[in-house]
């Protein structure tokens, strides 16, 4: 019987890759080249999970794509936004107000990390899930006021874990580069890509790392239809 409580049940077929579930209060990176459905996968995973858990709250932080554009793309893939998923549209804010001195670090991180208390004293709502799209854009914005380094990133990840937030960082990567520094700091690495298999180009997903969970290292074929993303079978050579 399917356990609806499991985060991995939110994407059709994801249970095949991960036995048990995706551990909570952990940090994950979703890597891949452009067009590999990284954003759609993260959106599909969290939106479906939140829809079946209305008391939970999630934030999708979009740094490059406007909310309108993101939602249009997601709707095109058959994905809708539940009420308990906040889309934070920094792309539009940047367009409206950016004067080169905006402190994106505090704007993005304060609502995530400094939300103790409630009401007038602190109206910020603590999220259970966060998607940051993308880590590459975050680095660029942070570099304007603060040079990001491994120590700061490690501190941020530690704070997110301490706050009990399950976080997904989308990271555009070059498929020729096998390792990135971030991989050592996070709890899980989910890689997505496009590969030629049996004469056809196919999208795939691979769990490269997931602490505290048994998982397959195989690449699985990914399909996208009206109901969102489905993970099919192991990719054959």
């Amino acid at each position: 019987m399917k356990n609806n409580n499991r985060l991995s049940s939110a994407v059709k077929g994801l249970d095949k890759l991960i036995s048990g579930s995706i551990p909570r209060e952990s940090i994950y990176v979703i890597t891949g080249n452009s067009g590999t459905l990284k954003s759609a996968f993260a959106f599909n995973l969290i939106s479906n999970h939140l829809r079946s858990h209305p008391k939970l709250f999630g934030v999708y932080i979009s740094l490059e794509q406007t909310k309108a554009s993101l939602l249009r793309n997601m709707e095109g893939l058959g994905l809708t936004t539940p009420k308990n998923l906040q889309i934070s549209d920094y792309a539009t804010l940047k367009h409206r107000l950016d004067d080169g001195d905006m402190d994106y670090g505090s704007m993005i991180l304060k609502p995530l990390l400094d939300n103790e208390g409630s009401g007038e004293q602190n109206p910020l709502k603590k999220p259970n899930y966060v998607i940051l799209d993308s880590l590459n854009a975050f680095y660029v914005l942070m570099a304007r006021t603060n040079e990001p380094d491994r120590e700061k990133l490690q501190y941020l990840f530690m704070m997110l874990r301490e706050k009990g937030i399950t976080s997904f960082f989308i990271m555009e990567t070059d498929p020729r580069e096998e390792f990135h520094e971030e991989f050592f700091l996070v709890d899980g690495v989910i890689d997505m890509g496009i590969i030629k298999s049996q004469g056809k180009f196919k999208r795939y997903i691979q769990v490269k790392k997931m602490r505290s969970a048994e998982h397959s290292l195989d690449q699985y074929v990914l399909d996208i239809g009206k109901g969102g993303i489905s993970i099919l079978d192991v990719l054959l050579e």
Binding site: D98, D99, D103, S106, L124
Partner: peptide, 16 residues
């Protein structure tokens, strides 16, 4: 506003 993370936004809007 610093505490809520909106101070920078307020300042930018004032500057604009």
């Amino acid at each position: 506003m610093v505490h809520w993370g909106v101070h920078s936004m307020f300042v930018s809007q004032m500057r604009s």
